[in-house]
Simulated scan of single mutants.
Amino acid sequence: MREPDSSYVRRKACRATETPWLCISDDVILTHHTFDMGHFFNEPRYETEREVSLLTGQLSVEAASRYRRKIVNARDLELAAVRCTTAGKLRSGGFAVVHTPGRILAECDAAGQHVSVIWPAEDPLNVQKIPWPPTVTKSFVECFNGYIEDGR
């Protein structure tokens, strides 16, 4: 199976600073969203990505769902959940938090901005190792405080 494109992070990285892996402050809350009844992707999916996507801010299930999909119905919200951490916790866990703004561009620390969580933290624009070893996946999960809100 072919690896996903390693240039994605470099191409999508924030252009506001020369260090898009540092333009999100350590104290910024990050939201991890799922549409799958609390089952979160705890590492990149080998076939499609080299990072795990999070959003800046402590977003509600509805706000995070609407970021990810244009049309969100009641069933989507029932199955969705979010959990939160901070950029600093992830960095302490050995990850890089790279601002990859996506379709909504605002100030670097503004709520609702896309970020890419990458391992290892060194040279994240050019090196994203996948799959993550089990110890790295465990470290990622331990950065979260559990579920903040679900759609039920």
Score class of each variant (00 low, 15 high):
M1I: 15
R2P: 14
R2S: 13
E3N: 10
E3M: 12
P4E: 05
V9G: 02
R10C: 12
C14W: 02
C14H: 00
R15Q: 13
R15H: 07
A16H: 09
T17F: 03
P20G: 01
W21M: 13
L22D: 11
C23P: 00
S25N: 15
D26Q: 07
D27L: 01
D27M: 02
D27R: 05
V28E: 01
V28Y: 02
I29G: 06
T31V: 05
T31D: 02
T31M: 00
H32G: 05
H32V: 11
H33I: 08
H33P: 03
H33R: 05
T34D: 01
T34Q: 01
F35G: 07
F35L: 10
D36M: 10
D36P: 06
M37W: 14
G38E: 07
H39L: 13
H39M: 11
N42S: 10
N42G: 09
Y46P: 01
Y46M: 11
Y46D: 07
E47M: 11
T48Q: 10
T48L: 10
E51W: 14
E51M: 12
V52W: 06
V52E: 09
S53V: 13
L55N: 08
G57N: 05
Q58V: 07
L59D: 01
L59T: 00
A64T: 08
Y67Q: 10
Y67R: 13
R69S: 06
K70A: 14
K70G: 12
D76A: 08
D76M: 07
E78Q: 14
L79F: 10
L79C: 14
A80C: 07
A81W: 04
A81M: 02
V82Y: 02
T86M: 02
T86S: 07
A87V: 11
L90R: 05
L90Y: 05
R91S: 11
S92A: 11
G94Y: 04
G94H: 04
F95E: 03
A96H: 03
A96F: 00
V97T: 06
V97E: 00
V98A: 01
V98D: 00
V98R: 06
T100M: 00
P101E: 09
P101R: 10
R103S: 15
I104L: 08
L105G: 08
A106S: 12
E107Y: 08
E107S: 11
A111T: 10
Q113T: 09
H114Y: 13
V117L: 08
I118S: 04
I118H: 02
I118Y: 01
A121H: 09
D123C: 09
D123S: 10
Q128R: 13
Q128V: 09
I130V: 15
P133H: 12
T137W: 03
T137P: 04
F140E: 01
E142A: 11
F144N: 04
F144R: 03
Y147H: 10
I148Y: 11
E149Q: 15
E149D: 06
E149V: 09
